[in-house]
């Protein structure tokens, strides 16, 4: 496991648990949860950051030396807004990485595939490392890989729903089809959901609501960290396939002669 690094673009990470910073009751608790998760990639909504103010509260609480601050374009309704937001963030000195979110419908926050692809093409050409949030659509994932995105981030279920991985079959296909890392994002409500994503071969997961709105966000962050580690270890150890019929755990052929 020690050499098992997550590679995204030109960077390597020890942690496979990405944390979103929305919905926490305070920046202090958010910071403590990020620490407990030992997360190395933390997403920050540009809509919440005061780009005109270098003393911005959210950014002040994150150590940019240890953590990749990944700005997201949450709230962008089309590719034009998303591209503008990414450019503003880069101009303000944030890393030229972007978690691309184009969510024109404000209630379920489902990603617009057409606008996401358009924005990704533009931003990749401008030198951004683009990590697009998508519905679990394998062909869209391939198209985004082709235009040069460094990951795809398919949703397990709608953002904040805590419903777990409802898109399991399509996520399996995406993992099978694409070469770039697949980060399962959105809807993972329990550590076991995160473990499942890792067991089936996701490169990483992103968690926000399930940690931020837990009774104890810091301990929940730790629980997710352990689940991600366990799931990854299980994947690397090649999970035995499931069988319907019982199979003895101590094979006795060779002992019993009939």
């Amino acid at each position: 496991m020690t050499n098992d690094k997550l590679k995204i673009g030109d960077r390597e990470f020890n942690s496979r648990l990405l944390i979103g910073t929305g919905k926490f009751g305070s920046h202090k608790i958010m910071r403590a949860a990020v620490d407990a998760a030992e997360a190395e990639i933390v997403t920050v909504a540009l809509r919440r950051v005061d780009l005109r103010n270098p003393q911005d509260q959210i950014l002040e609480h994150l150590d940019a030396k240890k953590i990749l601050i990944l700005p997201n374009t949450a709230g962008a309704r089309d590719h034009i807004e998303a591209v503008r937001m990414a450019r503003l963030a880069a101009a303000a000195g944030l890393p030229k990485w972007v978690k691309l979110e184009v969510t024109p419908e404000p209630r379920f926050l489902l990603p617009d595939p057409i606008e996401t692809l358009k924005a990704a093409e533009i931003l990749v050409k401008e030198g951004f490392k683009v990590l697009p949030y998508i519905n679990a659509d394998p062909i869209l994932a391939k198209r985004l890989e082709e235009v040069g995105c460094v990951t795809v981030m398919p949703l397990g279920s709608p953002i904040g729903s805590n419903r777990g991985i409802k898109t399991l079959d399509n996520i399996r296909i995406i993992i099978d089809l694409v070469k770039i890392p697949v980060v399962v994002d959105a809807g993972l409500g329990k550590p076991s959901d995160a473990a499942l994503a890792m067991e089936i071969g996701a490169a990483a997961v992103l968690i926000n609501t399930a940690i931020a709105t837990a009774g104890n966000p810091v301990e929940m962050a730790r629980a997710f960290k352990l689940a991600v580690t366990a799931g990854r270890l299980a994947y690397l150890s090649r999970l035995p396939s499931e069988k319907f019929a019982a199979e003895a755990s101590s094979p006795q052929s060779g002992i019993i002669h009939s």
Binding site: G22, K23, F24, S26, G160, T209, A212
Partner: peptide, 8 residues
Amino acid sequence: TLRQFGRT
């Protein structure tokens, strides 16, 4: 409310 909007 907590699930949708968090503690904000």
